[in-house]
């Protein structure tokens, strides 16, 4: 078997004295889609920040495509082919759609190619190319953010709470896009609170709780665990 695209070994991280990650181990095979689930405060977002270089880890190793990239700068990682779509606002609200797209060319693809791919995939963005990104709906903003993954053919796509604050039908649409990106062979780690939505497109799933990965496996098996963790054993 080839080298995993992402491998985390005993990763720890803390805010001051508060330990948020307590030794995370996770491995994503090349070309696979993994859903990372877990309740609020489990450390999912912190883990994304550590992988994307936004937060320094206090211990452990992060291997991207077999290279140890522990505590590399986010801009270096981005140029290495890591495409991170952070939670919340993931576009520049005071830039037009076209300007947002032109900034995606840092990953090594020409600006024209980015525009071409994005508009071909999301005609709605082409209609709004001169509009400020911040004035678009949340779903359209996420489409814009996803264009980066579509256009730049990343080594690994990191999606953090893609669905946050979005209505279910929009979320479904976005996950259709995720599926297509996955089918083109891109490896994806997707952090999601809506377990079922994410599991629909995943090959594997992992559950985090209390700063550790507590379960990994096939999507179906994991869903049971999830219900317990999130709804307090109720659902």
């Amino acid at each position: 078997m080839s080298v995993p695209i992402l491998e985390l070994v005993d990763v720890t991280a803390a805010y001051g004295r508060i330990e948020v990650l307590r030794g995370v181990n996770l491995s994503i095979p090349r070309g696979a889609v993994m859903a990372l689930l877990g309740p609020n405060g489990a450390g999912k977002s912190t883990l994304v920040k550590v992988i994307s270089g936004q937060k320094e880890s206090t211990g452990g190793d992060v291997h991207l495509g077999g290279v140890n990239v522990r505590n590399a700068d986010p801009e270096e990682l981005a140029r290495l082919g890591l495409c991170t779509v952070p939670e919340g606002r993931s576009v520049f609200p005071n830039l037009t759609v076209e300007e947002n797209l032109s900034l995606m060319s840092y990953a090594g693809v020409s600006a024209e190619a980015v525009l071409e791919t994005a508009y071909a995939y999301f005609p709605r963005l082409a209609e709004r190319r001169r509009q400020l990104a911040g004035t678009m709906s949340g779903g359209e903003q996420q489409m814009l953010a996803m264009s980066r993954a579509l256009a730049s053919d990343p080594a690994l796509l990191l999606l953090d709470e893609l669905s946050m604050g979005l209505a279910p039908l929009i979320v479904d649409e976005l996950y259709d896009t995720v599926q297509q990106i996955a089918e083109s062979g891109v490896s994806i780690l997707c952090i999601e609170q809506f377990a079922r939505t994410a599991l629909r497109v995943s090959d594997y799933a992992a559950v985090m709780s209390g700063g550790r990965v507590v379960a990994t496996g096939e999507p179906d098996e994991v869903l049971e665990t999830m219900s317990d963790v999130i709804l307090g054993g109720a659902a």
Partner: peptide, 16 residues
């Protein structure tokens, strides 16, 4: 609330 289907959806998302 525990029994409410919509609450479960809100937390877990929809599935087929």
């Amino acid at each position: 609330i525990r029994a409410d289907k919509r609450v479960q959806q809100a937390y877990l998302g929809y599935s087929d």
